[in-house]
Design a protein around this nucleic acid. Structure first.
Lengths: 216, 216
DNA sequence: GAGCATACCTACTCGTGCGTAAGGTTACGC
DNA sequence: GCGTAACCTTACGCACGAGTAGGTATGCTC
């Protein structure tokens, strides 16, 4: 066996923790470019500058690897948002800061977002995990609306609140998607636009103004 | 070879057009349950009550089959919406009818929606096609907003308009997704909720009321 | 400087599922 | 009633990619 001849400068041996991060970086990149199925473990290993068995040794099977990506990116995102939107602020201020943090994250981690949102969504095994994460977001938004409503002495059925929150989260994700496809776009400006759509509509609702279908 | 013994009542031979529809029905069903990759041509053929080579003979490769599904479901949906929202109505009326038609469609074709939205989105080869369809929707919505604005003597930059439209479409898709997961929910009611989120916010914008970030 | 653990490799196996070759059977025109 | 074309089948080839077996090198500890 020729093995590694000294022609190549005998690449560094790195501690596990470092290699794991490199692998995750590569995996996120490849998954986001190719999609879960089309991505091959060989390509990921290659991209990480390591051989395939190392990936299996450290991060396990392909599914487990994907879950690990999901976890890392998801955690990073949630932390970015939670860190920005402290809960002792008024609702509109929290919403604004949360949105800014969110779009900032997406702008800076387009690959991560693609993995999280575009890929995980379609694949059965991961959709549930993703849904849970989104569920937490919806709850937070619904909580903010509810809080603001109660402050005005109003009360709304929980389902209605949840659905509205769901719509707002959806709109936000959609804009994030748009942002991921427009590298030249400004995350801050996108956040402002979202705020316009969301808060002006919500504000109306908070005042008790509602729309209802025409008769017939 | 035993071949088909007369025990089974010699299943009917059907004309191509009919079989193609049966195949598409089966394909939509299986794709929506399993996802594009996990779905096997064998299962689709089986579900259509036909053998695999027939599928290849009529609809071509797996990718082509999926595109065919996408096309049929997409066309049906667009027709449902376009049919409901005639362009000679006022903007809010058009929006309302379009939304109602849309949620009605999703409520009635949950499988089709899952294929269109959840699957096509993640898979590179189809994402483009899907994006085009959504693009048309966004244009329509943006056009409605623009029309309403001009009627009030206002003018907004095209980009802003497009982004707002994008957000509204995203919110709507998100609610459709919610609807697909809640079989007991009422499409009509969901449309009303969406109208509340969208139109109240849009109405504010139409009046020239905008939100802007706090100083600092 | 022997021993041991950990990092790392090449080179396979093997299942799965797409796509097809080659042939059987039914309907319909003439 | 017979040919021909369209319908439909079984049974396979084959590529691709997940996962593994088994071995080599390197650094750390005492």
């Amino acid at each position: 066996m020729l093995a590694r001849v000294s022609s190549t400068p005998t690449f560094k041996r790195l501690p596990r923790a470092v290699r794991e991060q490199q692998m995750l970086d590569a995996a996120v990149k490849v998954f986001s470019r190719r999609g879960f199925h089309a991505a091959s473990m060989d390509e990921i290993a290659d991209d990480a500058g390591i051989s395939k068995p190392m990936v299996y040794a450290y991060l396990g099977t392909k599914e487990e690897l994907f879950v690990a990506c999901l976890h890392r990116e998801g955690t990073r995102m949630m932390e970015a948002i939670a860190g920005a939107a402290a809960s002792d602020l008024p609702a509109d201020e929290r919403l604004w800061r949360g949105l800014r943090a969110f779009f900032g994250f997406v702008g800076a981690h387009r690959d991560g977002w693609a993995v999280l949102y575009r890929q995980a969504r379609g694949e059965q095994p991961f959709a549930a995990e993703l849904a849970t994460m989104r569920g937490r977001l919806v709850e937070v938004v619904a909580g903010m609306l509810d809080h603001a409503l109660r402050a005005k002495g109003r009360e709304v059925r929980a389902t209605d609140l949840e659905v509205v929150a769901y719509a707002l989260v959806g709109a936000t994700e959609s804009l994030a998607d748009w942002l991921a496809d427009h590298p030249e776009a400004d995350p801050e400006k996108t956040a402002t636009r979202m705020m316009n759509v969301a808060w002006l509509g919500a504000d109306q609702l908070l005042r008790g103004i509602t729309w209802h279908p025409p008769a017939g």
